[in-house]
Design a protein around this nucleic acid. Structure first.
Lengths: 134, 134
DNA sequence: TACCGATATGCGAATTTAACATAACGATAA
DNA sequence: TTATCGTTATGTTAAATTCGCATATCGGTA
């Protein structure tokens, strides 16, 4: 299948196909990044599981770092995204605050509104990009 | 001016205004990021100045790291973005290759096509975001 | 042929990130 | 009342990355 001889004047060798990607994020008015796609998905995982530990495991993040990043973000925001409690039969739990839930919904809407447009633009441009490779 | 008493049932204290931002970048088919806005602007600075050193100074980058990143990108791309020469009266110079120039034009077009749409979407959503703060 | 300024590159310091270990907590079951 | 258990909280060390500085290389031009 792959060993067939290609009868072409210009054999395609090692053709690297490039892709386009994009990100949105929320930042302070002086340009300090606060949270983007990663935290968005993390918050959704927390909402699903009711646990920060379960969420970071699911995302493949480290608990130690994520815990600290969340602290840092909440401090800069000035409000809590999640409400944590520890102890008890289950060991503890973490749920989204009202504002945390709003942030999730905000990203849902943001990505939902522009993703189609961007993907369409990407599709129009990606061929042009790969032609540069030749 | 700022010491006036605000006669309002809900005084605005420490109101943090958030912003939205975005980025595009080119990556390999397995998701390895290659170059984005930073390299785009760097390449334009190289085109302007004819010098890698002048370009990194202008961008506020370090020569050491930028030089290595460019090597790495070019290696992964499989072609040169810039053509460097050293020695001579001017000490040396760096100019864009044909493909490097194409990459610059690609980003020009990419950002040019979507920036207006995205900014419009951002404007529609940013108020909603800042309402979350209340 | 010496000079000069940009490119090229080595290397230790500083900073950041990752990884591991351990403490604190509190509802529940015994 | 108390031991248990799983999660949150946090200290610490190792690893990886980045930064900063120093130095070598190069080759037109004076």
């Amino acid at each position: 299948m792959f060993a067939q001889i290609i009868h072409s004047s210009q054999m395609e060798v090692n053709r690297l196909h490039l892709r386009l990607d994009y990100k949105f994020w929320i930042e302070t008015e002086n340009g300090v990044s606060l949270l983007g796609e990663g935290k968005w998905k993390l918050l959704k995982a927390i909402r699903e599981t009711g646990s920060l530990k379960a969420a970071v495991d699911q995302m493949g993040y480290t608990y130690r770092q994520t815990w600290e990043k969340l602290n840092n973000i909440e401090e800069k925001l000035g409000f809590k995204l999640i409400e944590r409690s520890r102890g008890g039969a289950k060991g503890g739990e973490t749920v989204l605050t009202r504002k945390g839930e709003k942030i999730v919904q905000f990203f849902d809407k943001l990505y939902g509104e522009v993703d189609n447009d961007i993907q369409r633009t990407f599709n129009d441009l990606i061929d042009e990009l790969n032609e540069i490779m030749d």
